[in-house]
């Protein structure tokens, strides 16, 4: 039998810890045992860097405009201290918001509800700043016929079909898609492989899987079965249920290209 030669591609699968930030402090971070200041985003970010995180996502869940200005200072601090790429998301609704975060030092921004309300924003942002820094975050939930897009932190449903929306975002200039499953969020039952595989099969930009990870096996499954490019984890890392280093070693031992 002739060997099947596949073109070599060593692009690593990425593991991305996500930190929720409120008023400049990480929330859900209180269970860290080994850190002096459990709530400081920069310190936590650095800890994850040392453990081998490939990127970081900071999600601002601050409500008011006044508090959002403080976010810019925080992003500046992260950019000065951290030597891997990071994405900032939460409440971004205008070109001005995007510009401010990029100027403050964010490598990418993640746009969620605003991309549904105003798809033109995605196109404008991509043309202004380049597709490479525009991540579109999709909150999807199963419906009778497929998956619907939700907005406002998953609290409000729309009639938008999540799969078609993913394709549309690629066409408008998204550089990457971050796909959250509201059905799996917090369940630890594993990623929504079916949803992610559908989207990965349809678009030609990187896809980040989010929501549902409960074990190292779940990460392996989502990479192997859905062919995603990256996987995000939050509480599972924060509460040290999975050690980032162990996870990366496990994935590498199972044949995935991983940066160790």
């Amino acid at each position: 039998m002739r060997p099947i030669t596949q073109p070599k591609n060593c692009l690593a699968k990425r593991i991305i810890p996500c930190l929720d930030v409120k008023n400049g402090r990480v929330v859900k971070g209180t269970h860290f045992r080994d850190l002096r200041d459990a709530g400081d985003p920069v310190e936590l970010g650095k800890k994850y860097c040392d453990l081998g995180a490939d990127e970081l996502v900071f999600l601002d869940i601050t409500a008011t405009l006044e508090e959002r200005k403080a976010l810019r200072d925080l992003v500046g601090r992260i950019a000065r201290e951290i030597n891997i790429p990071f994405t900032v998301g939460g409440g971004i609704s205008s070109i001005e918001d995007v510009r401010n975060l990029l100027l403050a030092g964010a490598d990418k921004v993640s746009i969620c509800s605003a991309a549904v309300r105003d798809p033109g924003l995605v196109k404008r942002a991509s043309e202004h700043f380049g597709a490479q820094c525009i991540v579109i975050s999709i909150d999807a939930k199963r419906s009778a016929s497929g998956w619907n897009v939700y907005i406002k932190g998953g609290t409000e449903s729309t009639e938008v079909d999540a799969i078609a929306f993913a394709k549309k975002m690629e066409q408008l200039g998204a550089g990457e898609l971050l796909v959250n499953s509201l059905d799996r969020d917090g369940t630890k039952k594993g990623f929504d492989i079916e949803l992610l595989a559908k989207i990965c099969g349809l678009v030609n930009i990187p896809v980040i899987a989010s929501s549902g990870a409960g074990s190292m096996r779940d990460f392996l499954d989502v990479f192997q079965k859905a062919k995603v490019d990256a996987a995000l984890g939050a509480t599972i890392f924060h509460y040290q249920e999975i050690d980032l280093k162990d996870l990366k070693r496990f994935l590498s031992q199972n044949g995935l290209p991983i940066r160790l």
Partner: peptide
């Protein structure tokens, strides 16, 4: 080449 995911984004050797 258009068969490859573009941009080439992430950690590579």
């Amino acid at each position: 080449p258009s068969v490859l995911k573009t941009p080439h984004l992430g950690w590579n050797k």
